[in-house]
Lab assay of single mutants.
Amino acid sequence: NKFNKEMRNAYWEIALLPNLNNQQKRAFIRSLYDDPSQSANLLAEAKKLNDAQA
């Protein structure tokens, strides 16, 4: 399933972002599970926040 693969990839990328705190990571990951079709958008948002907090 395409969404499962995208979701799994996004999950690990988000989990490993160095500048997000655990609460932020959990919120993004919860959103991934709520709507796997938004994986790419959620990952992009997480990366933006990660960069902003660098």
Rank of each mutant, 00 (worst) to 15 (best):
I29N: 02
S39A: 10
F28A: 02
N19T: 06
K5P: 10
P36K: 04
Q38F: 06
N21L: 09
S39R: 15
L17N: 02
D34N: 11
A46R: 00
I29T: 07
Q23C: 05
E13P: 01
L49P: 00
K5N: 06
N21K: 07
A52Q: 14
N22V: 11
D34C: 09
Q23M: 11
L43Q: 06
N41A: 12
R26W: 13
A27H: 06
F3S: 11
R26S: 06
A27E: 05
Q53L: 10
A54H: 13
N19A: 07
S39H: 13
A54N: 08
N21F: 08
L49R: 06
N22Q: 11
L49A: 07
N4E: 14
Q53G: 06
N21W: 12
A27L: 07
N9E: 11
P36C: 02
M7K: 02
Y11R: 14
N22R: 13
R8F: 13
A40E: 06
W12E: 05
Y11T: 12
S31I: 08
A52H: 12
Q24K: 03
S37H: 05
S31T: 04
L17K: 03
E45C: 08
P36H: 04
I14M: 06
E13N: 13
M7Y: 07
N22A: 11
A54D: 09
E6Y: 04
L32S: 01
A44K: 14
L43A: 10
N9T: 15
L16K: 15
L20F: 01
L20T: 00
F3N: 13
N50S: 12
A27V: 10
A10L: 06
R8G: 03
A54V: 13
I14H: 00
K5W: 05
K47W: 12
R8C: 15
L32P: 00
D51P: 01
M7S: 04
F28H: 01
N1A: 03
P36Y: 06
N21M: 08
Q23F: 12
R30I: 05
F3D: 14
A46N: 00
F28T: 01
A54W: 13
N19S: 10
L16S: 13
K25C: 03
L43I: 12
M7I: 08
N19H: 09
K2D: 15
K47I: 08
F28S: 01
Y33W: 07
P36N: 04
K2H: 10
M7E: 02
S37P: 07
L32I: 06
A54C: 04
M7H: 03
Y33A: 03
N22H: 11
S39P: 04
L16A: 14
D34E: 08
A52L: 09
N50A: 03
M7F: 12
K25A: 02
S31C: 03
P18R: 15
S37F: 08
Q23K: 07
F28P: 00
L49C: 03
Y33V: 09
K5C: 06
Y33P: 01
W12F: 13
A10F: 12
L42W: 12
K5T: 04
D51H: 09
A46W: 01
K2Y: 07
Y11K: 14
S31M: 08
Q23S: 10
N50P: 01
L49W: 07
A44Y: 14
R26D: 03
K5V: 03
R30T: 04
R26T: 07
A15N: 13
K48Q: 05
A27F: 15
Q53C: 03
E6P: 04
F3K: 09
Q23W: 15
L17S: 08
L16W: 13
S37L: 06
A27S: 09
K2W: 10
D51M: 13
I14T: 01
K25M: 04
Q23A: 10
K47H: 08
L42I: 09
N22D: 09
Q38T: 06
K25T: 02
A52N: 10
D35E: 10
P36F: 08
N41H: 12
K25F: 12
K47R: 14
Q53V: 09
L20H: 00
L49F: 08
L16I: 07
L16R: 15
L32R: 00
D34P: 02
Q24C: 02
E6A: 05
A15G: 09
F28V: 02
I29W: 14
N9S: 12
A15P: 01
Q53T: 07
E45L: 15
A10V: 09
N41F: 13
S39G: 07
P36M: 05
Y33Q: 04
D35Q: 11
S31L: 07
N9L: 15
W12A: 11
R8N: 05
K2M: 10
L32W: 02
K47C: 03
D34I: 13
R26I: 08
E45I: 15
S39C: 03
D34A: 13
N9C: 06
R8P: 01
I14Q: 00
F3Y: 11
Q38M: 13
N21D: 13
N9W: 15
K2R: 08
P18L: 11
N19Y: 14
S31A: 12
A54F: 11
A15L: 15
Q53D: 06
R30N: 03
A15K: 15
N19E: 04
L17T: 02
E13M: 15
R8L: 11
S37E: 03
W12Y: 14
A52I: 11
A44N: 10
K25V: 05
L17D: 01
N4A: 04
W12G: 05
S31P: 02
L20N: 00
Q23D: 08
Q24T: 05
P18S: 11
K47T: 04
P18Q: 10
L32A: 01
E6K: 04
A27D: 04
S37R: 09
L16Q: 14
Q23E: 13
D34M: 14
I14D: 00
N22Y: 15
A10P: 01
E13G: 14
K48I: 15
A52E: 12
N50E: 02
K25G: 00
N22P: 12
N21I: 08
A27N: 09
E6H: 05
N9I: 15
Q24A: 06
Q24V: 05
E45V: 13
D51S: 09
E6Q: 10
S37D: 05
K5G: 03
L20K: 00
N41Y: 15
K48W: 10
R8D: 04
E45N: 12
L32G: 01
K2S: 12
N9Y: 15
A15W: 14
N4S: 03
L42V: 13
A46E: 00
N22K: 13
E45K: 14
E13H: 15
N4W: 15
A40G: 09
N4H: 11
L20Q: 00
L32T: 02
S37G: 08
Q38Y: 09
R30H: 05
L16E: 06
N1W: 01
L42T: 08
N19L: 09
L17E: 01
K2G: 14
M7W: 14
S37N: 04
Q53Y: 09
A46G: 02
Y11H: 08
S31K: 11
Y11M: 14
D35S: 12
W12N: 14
K5A: 06
I14S: 00
N9R: 15
P18C: 06
S39K: 14
K2C: 15
K2P: 07
E6V: 06
K5R: 05
P36R: 04
N50G: 03
I29Q: 13
R8S: 06
L42S: 07
Q23T: 09
L20W: 00
Q23H: 10
S31V: 09
K5F: 02
F3H: 15
A54P: 09
K47N: 08
K2F: 11
Q38A: 08
W12C: 04
K25Y: 06
E6L: 10
P36E: 02
W12M: 12
A44W: 14
L49E: 04
P36Q: 05
Y33S: 03
E6I: 06
